[in-house]
Structures are given as structure tokens and as C-alpha cells.
Nucleic acid binder design. Structure first.
Lengths: 204, 204
DNA sequence: CCAATTACCAACTGATTGGTCGGTTTATTT
DNA sequence: AAATAAACCGACCAATCAGTTGGTAATTGG
């Protein structure tokens, strides 16, 4: 009964290292041998646990990637009051984490979306689904913010969510060299300005 | 003397098809044979004109890619009055072009930045240099807009440029499936809202 | 303690990769 | 027309890829 423990432990080691390398080098540019070498495991071990490279990647997306996005960008917002402050704080935290990570290669999710776009519709679906979880959560939170009097009632919540997500993806794409700190500072400054616009009862 | 014409014609055919495929499939995921097959040319022809795959790609970046970004995002802004309207118009045009391109795979430049980040510093430099041309142009235009009374004097031009670029990169990354039209509409709506904020003499 | 199952090994396959090279065709010069 | 150089061909090479296979070591239930 407890034999599954070893299986799952090995699988998780593979997934964890897999995500790390896929994130650093891209999916197509990372070979299974790269991952196995880092773990001192063999091809046989890999294909014992996973059907294919694609199956392996999907399992990473559904487990690790979803968790990563959810805990960083969705959970901190869910059910909170004062949506605009909570949202900007979650984004600030995410950017700070990224900046202090000396091996940062952008927003994991959007990097993969870029890589798989037009190549693998099935994987794309898994990725955009995660994106959608964030989007829906943002919209819901903004709508609730209207009812609670934090957000201007004339604001188009869906449009705001689109704009917030877009800008976050972009700034993470740009945060790739030594200029991360200044970039983050400028970005957050403007994000908060933008939020001021939609918090008061101005046009929107 | 006129023999160079043929050389350049062939090289440009290769570069054009190369950019097309690199854009669609990514650099690492596109083989030289893919490109040559499309042109009915041989390996020998390729290596007669270019030293390596990397050299080939760099030539594409410096010629075609630079031109593409410049004509779409820099030129329409340069030296114009009323910067905010000109900027938002250039972005709207770029998004509309992208939307009506039934083979759209995101913002070429940022796609490559994502792909090469952490892998090839030399190529990264060429790519970020193009990005910087756009950024500098935006900043200059915004600054001039202050002098001419179009942009609020308290606005941080660099921060605005960062925010505009980020959001554009992001929305282009998201514009990858059937939802392009709605996405573009929402995005432009919020961009213009944001611009209203920095055009009047409000805080910024 | 032993048989069965689980977990893993490592050599191999066939396809593809970027790049080389000796040779042929095409165009230009004299 | 002959000689020269530019443009291109395509077979080949070593390396690498995802995936297969036939086996062995470790674990576990009876």
C-alpha cells in the first residue's frame, strides 16, 4: 500500500526538476536526458512513470504550474475586501519574488503560452485555462468591490482585468536583465495610478 | 557589378521565409531544412550565404525585425504633436493588423525575447536594443508632449513608457486565439482611460 | 523466505539536427 | 570560346532527440 509513496516521490522529483528546466530552457529545447541527468535517473525510469514527454509536461502544468499561479495570484485576492489594494499587493509581491530570484526567466505561464501557441492546441488549452482562473477571479473580485463601494460602479471589470493581466505579463517579460528593480518600481507606480482612476467615481 | 543582385535576392528570400517560420514555430523549433524546403534550395546554398543558423537569425533581426517594429510603432509617433493620441493610434493600428492576420503568433519581438532569454546573451542584446528604440522614442515623445501642453507636467514619462510597453506586450501575448477582437476592444478602452489620467493636470 | 510486483537501468533505434565538403551548374570576364 | 568566379547541389557526418526493449535490483505481500 505504501509502495505508492516511492512512486509519487520519484514522479514529483521528476516534475519539479522538469519544470525548472522547462522554465529555464523552454520545453522543446529541454531534452528528457537533461532532466534525467540532473536526477541521476535513467530513461527507463522516466518511461516507467510517464507515457511521453507531452504527458509528462501536462502533468507538470496541472500540478505544479497551476498551484504556483493560484497561490501567488489567486489565493491572496479571493474573498478579500478592498480589491484594488489587494490586487496591487499580490502583483507587487509576485514581482518582488521574481526580482529576488536570481534565475528569473519571466512569467512561467505566459512563457509557455508563447512557446506552445500554434503548435500544440491541447497543451495550450491547459495553459489558457489556468490564465482564465486568474482572470475570472480578478473580475469577480472587482465586481464585489463595486458592491462594497471600493470600485467605481461604471468600471468595466472585464476590461480592467484584461488590462491588469496584460501589463503584468508584459512587465514580467521585460524583467529579464539587471534592470528589474527600476522596471518594477515604475510599473507598480503606474499600476497604482491606474487603480486610482477606477476607484473614485470618475469615468471608466 | 550586378552580380550582387542575385546574391541579395536569394539572401532576402531566405531571410523572409526564415522570419516567417521562426515567428510561427520558434527559433529552436525551426530547422534550416524547413526553411530550405519551402524555398526549394539546398544546404549548400544556405551555407554559401550565411555562416551559421545564429548568424542567419541575427541578420534577420537587424534587417527585417527592426524595420517591422520601427515602421509600426516608432515612425508613426516620431515628431508628431498630440502624443497620447498618436501613441494610442499606433498601438490600435498594430493590434488591428495583428487581429486580421489569421496567422498571428503574438508580438514578434517579445516572443523572441522570451525564447532567447537566458540562452543567448548576444541575440538578446540585439532584441532588447530594438525594444529600447521604441522605449526611447516613447519617452521623448511624452516629454515633448509636456512642453507642448498635451501631457501633464507631473507625469513620469519613463514610467508611462514602461507601462504602455508592458501592457502592449501582454495583450499581444494573450491575443492568440479566437478572442482577439474582444481582447483588443477591452484593452484599448482601458489604455485610453489611462491616457486620460496623464493628460489632465491630475496627480501622476 | 520466496514469488510477484514495482522501480529502475542502459543499450539501442530511427529520425532529425546543424554543419561540411567535393563537385556541378550558371553567369561573368577576357 | 575559354577561363574564372559566383551560386548552388546533395550526400555525408557526428551529435542529439524521443521512445523501445529486454533485462536487473529493490520492495513487499503471503
Amino acid at each position: 500500500m505504501e509502495k505508492n509513496l516511492k512512486r509519487m516521490a520519484t514522479m514529483q522529483r521528476m516534475q519539479s526538476t522538469g519544470l525548472e528546466l522547462f522554465y529555464q530552457q523552454g520545453y522543446y529545447n529541454t531534452s528528457i536526458d537533461d532532466i534525467l541527468k540532473k536526477l541521476s535517473l535513467s530513461k527507463g525510469a522516466f518511461y516507467y512513470h510517464f507515457q511521453s514527454k507531452e504527458d509528462f509536461f501536462i502533468s507538470i502544468v496541472q500540478n505544479l504550474l497551476f498551484q504556483k499561479v493560484y497561490s501567488m495570484l489567486v489565493e491572496p485576492i479571493e474573498g478579500q475586501e478592498d480589491p484594488l489594494n489587494v490586487i496591487s499587493k499580490s502583483i507587487e509581491d509576485a514581482l518582488e519574488t521574481a526580482e529576488h530570484n536570481n534565475m528569473d526567466f519571466g512569467f512561467v505561464l505566459s512563457n509557455f503560452i508563447t512557446e506552445f501557441n500554434g503548435k500544440n492546441p491541447e497543451i495550450m488549452k491547459y495553459l489558457t485555462d489556468i490564465m482564465k482562473v486568474w482572470e475570472v477571479n480578478l473580475i469577480t473580485t472587482l465586481q464585489k468591490g463595486k458592491t462594497d463601494g471600493y470600485v467605481d460602479r461604471h468600471v468595466d471589470s472585464e476590461a480592467v482585468a484584461t488590462y491588469v493581466i496584460s501589463s503584468y505579463i508584459g512587465v514580467r517579460t521585460l524583467m529579464v536583465e539587471g534592470n528589474s528593480k527600476m522596471l518594477r518600481y515604475k510599473y507598480v507606480q503606474q499600476l497604482k495610478n491606474y487603480f486610482k482612476l477606477i476607484s473614485q467615481k470618475a469615468v471608466a
